Amino acid sequence: MITLTVGLTFIGFFLSYNTSKRAKPANGKIRDWAKKNPKISIGTGIAFLVAGLALAVVALGLGSGIFSFLVILMLLGSLTVLVSPLHFFSLKGLILLVVIALLIELNLT
């Protein structure tokens, strides 16, 4: 559950971040789509953020879910702003990372 919360929060922040005029333009399907469709991208990003918050509240309770969501959001936000201009993120790498984290979380390795 926590892995899904982190994943949804990252996707939501990343979509919202790429609509910013301060974000350095980069190549990539998701980044190009976010730049071309800023209103849809912001709406989708907010929907992912709300889904991440709801999942955190369901998994951890109201108070600790909101607190952990805010900590996750601050962590992912700062990492995205620092690492995104370096083009460190790739879609395949992120999907692989989330799958490995889910397997570790669910003890299926």
Rank of each mutant, 00 (worst) to 15 (best):
G63N: 13
V98Y: 01
F88L: 12
M74D: 07
V81M: 03
F67W: 09
V99S: 07
I66K: 01
G77W: 01
G61R: 08
L49P: 00
V83M: 15
P85T: 11
L55F: 09
L96W: 11
V99T: 09
V50D: 08
S90M: 06
L96N: 12
G52S: 12
L62P: 05
G61Q: 11
F48W: 05
G93R: 07
L79Q: 08
G65F: 02
L62I: 14
L94V: 14
G93H: 03
G61N: 12
L53Y: 02
L91P: 04
V50I: 15
A54F: 12
G63V: 14
L70R: 01
G61T: 09
V81S: 00
G65P: 05
V99N: 03
L73Y: 01
V99Y: 04
G61H: 06
V98T: 00
S78W: 03
A101V: 00
F69Q: 00
L75V: 15
A59V: 07
L49R: 02
L75Y: 07
F48C: 08
A101E: 02
I95M: 14
P85A: 12
T80H: 06
L79K: 04
I95T: 14
L70F: 06
L96T: 14
K92M: 11
A51G: 08
I100V: 08
S64A: 12
F69K: 00
A101H: 02
G61P: 11
L79M: 14
F69V: 00
L55T: 09
K92L: 12
S84M: 12
V71H: 00
F88C: 08
F48I: 07
L62F: 15
V57G: 09
S90R: 04
A47Q: 06
I66N: 02
V81Q: 00
I95E: 12
L76A: 01
S84T: 15
I95Q: 12
G63I: 14
L79N: 07
V57N: 11
A101F: 03
L73I: 04
V58S: 13
L82A: 14
L82I: 10
L75K: 09
F67Q: 10
S84A: 15
A59D: 15
F89V: 06
K92E: 15
S68Y: 00
S64M: 14
I100T: 06
K92Y: 09
A101D: 02
L55Q: 06
S90D: 11
V50E: 10
G93Y: 04
L75E: 08
G65L: 05
F69H: 00
